[in-house]
Design a protein around this nucleic acid. Structure first.
Ligand code: FES
Ligand code: FES
Lengths: 143, 143
DNA sequence: TCTTAAATATGATTTTTATCATATTTCATG
DNA sequence: CATGAAATATGATAAAAATCATATTTAAGA
């Protein structure tokens, strides 16, 4: 499905979405523990996300990671794309070169529609929407 | 999603479903090439499937792999379960311990319904049904 | 400007998955 | 019943993913 790294990254971003702001930056050691991911590992992922502008950071004392206004308007798939690369989730279930209607593998029709709606849902949901859900009890934290 | 090994295994089983029978056993070297999987690799997978009774085999001269009547009444998920283990596909998208409605992670509602129908489709489709699809041009081979 | 606290860059190690190799067992056939 | 053709059992190697470690850079504040 998606890599372990992507899952960790999403967990971290959600944590930041709920707990951080421009005025309240959080450093990795305070992120790693609550989301239950080894610190050096999540550090590397956060650095990658920051480099790709999906999250914000400043270094030095009082520094840390946080989500800007722009950052909370991203969707989850953008995170996955940065960590795992573009294609993974839309790849053919049986690893055909191209997954499409023209040359479908035998299981294509069994999974394609569901996969598409899943993807639409994920792409349509912004980080800030997820935070609302959590506040309304529709999704549970911590992870 | 599912492992490479599972994909290979499915491809091999489909190949057997279309080309083999009790009277027409096929040996690994004649399976490996058309499905585009290295021979020692698919050999190991086929052996595992045979041991778990998802496919049939006999050894010695004139031996090989084939699908019995019982074998073609299996569904694809059974193959995945043998190769990857039970849970993978129904695991929480964010790796929570348990994925369920009672304690859903924030993305649970975005993916759960689609995932469930995908699973239902895969479990409801027997190997022999897939062969029919292929014969009717609904799914393409080779892989 | 000096010290210190933080992210960053880079890379090493470990674990898992994928791939390959080979000796052993079974079975059909002469 | 001997021979050879096939799967089987077992394990070795290679590649990728996950995890851990550390030296460097940046920025705040004394
Ligand atoms: S072609 Fe295989 S899933 Fe689309
Ligand atoms: S709880 Fe995460 S996907 Fe169901």
């Amino acid at each position: 499905m998606i890599s372990n790294s992507s899952k960790y990254a999403i967990k971290a971003v959600l944590f930041l979405a709920v707990h951080s702001s421009e005025e309240n930056k959080i450093m990795v050691k305070d992120i790693a523990e609550p989301i239950n991911v080894p610190q050096p590992y999540i550090a590397k992922l956060l650095q990658e996300l920051a480099k790709r502008k999906l999250i914000s950071s400043t270094r030095g004392p009082k520094g840390g990671f946080y989500l800007s206004e722009a950052d909370v308007n991203r969707n989850i798939m953008e995170i996955v794309h940065v960590i795992d690369g573009e294609k993974k989730l839309n790849a053919c279930f049986l690893s055909l070169e191209h997954c499409n209607e023209k040359n479908p593998c035998p299981v294509h029709h069994l999974i394609n529609a569901s996969r598409a709606t899943m993807m639409k849902n994920l792409k349509g949901k912004l980080i800030k929407d997820l935070v609302l859900d959590v506040k309304n009890g529709k999704g549970k934290l911590p992870l």
